[in-house]
Design a protein around this nucleic acid. Sequence first.
DNA 1: GGCCAGGTCCAAT
DNA 2: ATTGGACATGGC
Length: 283
Amino acid sequence: MTTRLQAPGFDLRHTLECGQFFRWTRTPDGYYVHVGGLLFAVRQHGDELLVEGAPASFARRFFSLDHDTPLIEERLLHDRRLREAVEVYRGLRILRQDPWECTVAFLTSAASNIPRIAANLADIAQAYGRPTARGGFQSFTFPRPDEIGDEEGLRKLRLGFRARYLVEAARLTRAGLLEDLEDLPFEEAREALMVVPGIADKIADCILLYAFGHLNAFPVDTWIRRVMRDMFFQGRKVPDSAIREFASERWGDWAGYAQQYLYIWARERRPVIYRETLAAGAV
DNA sequence: GGCCAGGTCCAAT
DNA sequence: ATTGGACATGGC
């Protein structure tokens, strides 16, 4: 049975493919999405989201259908520097992911890249999750913190130095770390997350933004650092803390959305930047 | 072969 | 307080 959700102004492709989430599979007319114990199918027809295999209440929350994106987009479009990115990727939503799975995803993201992160997560699910299927599509659930393997097992999955971090994160999550963040204000939740080895500013901000709905979080990774330097700091090297403060002052409670537009825009502009570099004779 | 990848940690300025 | 290298692995 299919659940239909009203989602005006929503863009499913931009939402799933903008680099915030890695457990999706594209099909000819939509996607399979793996999250929690669920494997659901989702496609978009105009202003409607058609979901098979997940309760409506879950899908509404996961896709953040409560976010006031018309307001957010309008405000960000007023920013000259952001306008092009927002116009190209309009309809993108910041998801509300499962906190544990999001933590694992971004712990594995250190010094990696999107295809590899997705492969690492698929390997973890295959090794420690349960088989599951929908509509002939086979997959695996993602292991809970008490089901994920030990360091040796994770290293066999080629997670490298990240294996130890995942083991510690699982232990702290079993002790209630992530549940306790739900009611904390941003700064306190951030401090609490950073007690996990392997989680510092950037990964903490990713988890707070993508799993806890802290839309003021502004994760500064190598792409954001580059585009922010170019756009706002005359290409100068500046500390990440200065970039975060600048974003907070300029975009406030919507800095997280600004970050996501800039991130996907900067990434997909890479070939252009490369050609310009070539033309400048730098290679 | 060397460098970089959605970083973080630790030691040496 | 800031900076360089190490940490595993893969891709170009």
